[in-house]
Design a protein around this nucleic acid. Structure first.
Lengths: 206, 206
DNA sequence: CCAACATACAAACGATTGTTTAACATGGGC
DNA sequence: GCCCATGTTAAACAATCGTTTGTATGTTGG
């Protein structure tokens, strides 16, 4: 076999972005903006710059595209939570760390995050149940962390843990709704501001 | 004409629910579950128990139904905020009051709240802009309240007000996603737990 | 009793949906 | 220089979309 300085692979990671990737990028953006049922294959094709039928040389179906977008998104959140869990930090530090990771993932691609949080309803079984389990795994990291923080006296024992966790998750899950890359604050700065509000509360310390 | 023990008025507020109201209830539930673009007029008609064409004796169009659902929902939130504002409470009390009202509105009809928060994207102009302005009015009540709380020393001066308000709103806007009428806690109990977490934070007081 | 009205049905409309098919181009490896 | 894989076009498919139409059926106020 001769030397291959610049192989120009047919369907590997080459200079030009692979058409399959272009399709997924366009689909992610459109699903985020108009929702899964509000986006047509013709919309996606037009965004990529090809005809609708040509999409099917690269993808299996509209449903399969949605599934892959959501699954890859959920996996990022879970990988981040697992990474933080491995460090076995004190509860407050663990929360700050995971909130930072959360906002980095949102900032990297807010549209994909919106799809993950809202379009899972349109997955058909058994994928929907499987993805729901994955999302629950992420939520349970927060439950465990808050519970541990209460157990060792770091957090207030009077907390309603369930509501508190859902409140924190709500604050985080809502961020892709307002985050803008054009804003002045970096994802880490936003994460730390949010962490400060959530952990220390609004009230002034005596 | 014989006696009428049960008048059965044609289109007044009688014993039987008006068909128009049945349509809006079904549309609210379906728009909340499957989204606006994921719901067909045939879905709504089947839920009401009539044929698709018969809907148009009661409504103008699918878009008009969505607009009315969202607008009536937004108006409830704004009316609640205005009511609290009139009382001119200290910032912490004002927040607790509006959070209570917020959760009562969510609890009364979580599906309608979901439609308000997510389906406004499918309104066409100028309605979308007008509704966005109404939503901003609600959000500004929170901004003003937090800012006032910081100004008079009730809240921590180190707060990033913008992020803090968006965090609180995120926690509140996410509630219809998990609130269940079958749950053990009342809306007011949930609101007070949430208020405690948000205002006092997770950390144990020294 | 009757005119008016509200409501319903059955059927259809043009447009749009996701997807399939057959034919045509293109370009690198033997 | 040919071959095969890859990617595209053009055209069409059955199904479904929001909505309209014409007609029938009661029910009510006068």
């Amino acid at each position: 076999m001769t030397l291959e300085p610049s192989p120009a692979q047919p369907h590997a990671t080459s200079g030009r972005t692979a058409p399959r990737e272009l399709i997924f990028d366009a689909a992610t953006r459109l699903f985020g903006e108009r929702g899964y049922t509000g986006t047509t294959m013709r919309d996606i094709a037009k965004a990529v710059g090809i005809l609708p039928g040509s999409l099917y040389a690269h993808i299996h179906s509209k449903d399969a595209v949605l599934l892959e977008i959501i699954e890859s998104g959920v996996d990022r959140f879970n990988a981040a939570a697992d990474r933080v869990e491995e460090q076995a930090l004190p509860a407050a530090d663990a929360l700050q760390a995971v909130i930072r990771e959360h906002l980095r993932i949102v900032a990297e691609n807010p549209q994909r995050t919106l799809v993950v949080f809202h379009q899972w309803r349109f997955l058909d079984e058994p994928h929907r149940s499987r993805l729901r389990t994955k999302r629950r795994h992420y939520e349970e990291f927060f439950s465990h962390t808050v519970r541990a923080g209460v157990a060792d006296g770091e957090f207030d024992a009077g907390l309603d843990i369930k509501v508190t966790v859902l409140g924190v998750l709500g604050a985080l899950n809502w961020t892709p709704e307002w985050y803008s890359a054009e804003g002045p604050a970096s994802p880490d700065q936003i994460a730390d501001s949010l962490t400060a509000s959530l952990l220390r509360g609004l009230h002034r310390r005596a």
